[in-house]
């Protein structure tokens, strides 16, 4: 099997701070990481390779600094990394991003060998849209399934994908090629291994493709190829709250204080009475 896995090199949102005066992100000194939600996708890709052979190719559209992210996943056992990089890809929304990734997958199919499945994480921690899987499927004309927890090949060459929704565990048999997006924390990723890291150091299996390599029209990529535009950014309006804070003498005092507040608060008192005694 030839499996493509999409990854994103993202700023670690847990470490991001805001400048309270300007409201802008302080990115300086914020370390980047491989998007945590991509790891189940990487793990699923590697498991498929373990079972059926073939190769796993990680793809990312990013500035050259994302090479570090590709090196990290090569250390997990991914065979090749493809960096889709060009200044003309900058400022892309999800449509323009998925377009470049889909064109990258087409180029892999043509020049390296046909891709059987493209796997993505559920969403990224820096923009949380969960768009890319469906959009890549739309560009490629492939069937797709979200929230996957596992996948295996079945007899007629189809991929049997298991997923869980709010209501059921579902299994689909999907014709290949297909797009699969994994659920958050669906699979525990394997650790980086020194031998893989060394192999990557020696073989240098990272290829960079720019807009000319992909043969794309600059009107279709980056900011120009993005239908959505950020018109403005503001602070989120605060929800009005009472903000009464009490430091109690002891736990009993705390409990009685809470109950006093709630039973003298019209918006909840009636409700609590109903909960306790079944009537208002």
């Amino acid at each position: 099997m030839r499996i493509v896995v999409g990854i994103k090199w993202v700023p670690n949102t847990q470490a991001v701070r805001f400048d309270p005066k300007t409201g802008t992100l302080i990115r300086a000194g914020v370390p980047s990481i491989v998007n945590p939600h991509d790891f189940p996708a990487i793990e699923l890709a590697l498991r498929l390779k373990d079972m059926y052979g073939g190769e796993v190719i990680a793809v990312t559209m990013a500035p050259p600094s994302a090479t570090q992210g590709l090196e990290h996943v090569l250390g997990m056992g991914v065979d090749k990394g493809i960096l889709l990089t060009d200044r003309k890809f900058a400022g892309a929304d999800t449509l323009a991003t998925s377009y470049v990734i889909a064109k990258g997958i087409e180029k892999i199919s043509k020049e390296i060998g046909p891709v059987d499945v493209a796997i993505f994480g559920h969403e990224t921690i820096d923009s949380s849209t969960a768009h890319i899987g469906a959009q890549v499927a739309s560009w490629l004309g492939w069937p797709y399934v979200y929230y996957a927890r596992d996948a295996k090949l079945v007899e007629d060459g189809k991929l049997r994908v298991t997923r869980q929704t709010e209501k059921a565990v579902e299994e689909y048999e999907v014709n290949l090629p297909a797009v699969v997006a994994t659920a958050i924390k669906a699979l525990k990723p394997r650790p980086v291994r020194l031998s893989y890291k060394l192999r990557a150091k020696i073989e240098k299996p990272i290829i960079a493709w720019n807009i000319e390599d992909l043969g794309l029209d600059p009107r279709c990529t980056g900011l120009k190829g993005s239908p959505t535009v950020v018109a403005n950014i503001t602070w989120m309006p605060e929800v009005p709250r009472k903000k009464i804070v009490y430091t109690p003498k002891d736990p009993r005092d705390a409990a009685r204080w809470i109950l006093k507040q709630l039973f003298s608060d019209e918006s909840v008192a009636g409700f609590l009475k109903k909960a306790l005694w079944g009537e208002e």
Partner: peptide
């Protein structure tokens, strides 16, 4: 959280919840 809630109590939650549960049971 105290700047974003209506009623805030500073303290170890465990004994406070125990007391709150007891008080509610008595009220009930």
């Amino acid at each position: 959280i105290f700047k974003q809630s209506d009623y805030g109590v500073v303290g170890d939650y465990r004994p406070i919840l125990e007391a709150l549960i007891e008080e509610l049971q008595q009220l009930k």
